[in-house]
Design a binder for these strands. Structure first.
Length: 194
DNA sequence: CCCCAGGATTGCT
DNA sequence: AGCAATCATGGG
């Protein structure tokens, strides 16, 4: 593990503590959160998740059976609710299809399958792979790029260049990937407050 | 009143 | 290939 990346990780962990992103909830709920949080404050996502749960609509069969208008009303606090209602259905179809096959699939093949879903880009796909499926994929976002440039770690244009930078310089350990990404987000939030 | 949030797609150049 | 417009609610 590259020393600089390890030191920074330990610093973040000491400063902010264990973030515990997406802990004791169902993997499906993680996937729903990954879609709903696109360009949206997590607090708003929590409201939508609570709405879905209260309506007993937080499982694949219920989402697939729900009318779009109903889904839209439930996830409204997350914004972009028309797009997201459709995206949630598309993602849920894939989720259901993959439930039986995913264990046999290579991580990159699974990633390609998710990237083919409308409304699922690289960051959302990787969040699903890491936090819902437990695959060793490093999630990159705008904060990750800011973090890299702020500490003089790495500069690039493409999403996948950043992803591979982390994947090839820290151990391919799922809990570490989960925690590191969450800590970077926390770091950026704190930094913004100043 | 402004800007942003745990993005992705489409369309134009 | 790059870049702007679009989607839309809630909080600072």
């Amino acid at each position: 593990m590259q020393k600089r990346l390890k030191d920074l990780y330990l610093e973040l962990l000491a400063a902010y503590g264990h973030q515990g992103w997406w802990p004791a909830i169902s993997p499906y709920e993680v996937m729903v959160g990954a879609v709903l949080t696109q360009n949206t404050n997590w607090k708003n996502v929590e409201k939508a998740i609570a709405n879905l749960k209260a309506a007993d609509c937080l499982h694949p069969s219920a989402v697939l059976a729900a009318r779009n208008a109903r889904l839209e009303a439930l996830i409204r606090p997350t914004g972009f609710y028309r797009q997201k209602a459709e995206r949630l259905k598309c993602a849920t179809e894939t989720w259901t299809q993959m439930s039986a096959r995913k264990s046999k699939m290579d991580t990159m093949a699974l990633r390609a399958r998710w990237l083919a879903v409308k409304g699922i880009g690289k960051e959302t796909a990787d969040s699903i792979l890491l936090y819902a499926y437990g695959r060793p994929v490093f999630v990159v976002d705008a904060y990750t790029r800011l973090f890299c440039s702020h500490h003089g770690l790495f500069e690039a244009k493409e999403y996948d260049e950043y992803r591979r930078f982390f994947e090839s310089n820290i151990p391919g350990c799922v809990p570490l990937f989960k925690e590191y990404h969450a800590l970077i987000v926390q770091w950026a939030k704190q930094k913004r407050k100043k």
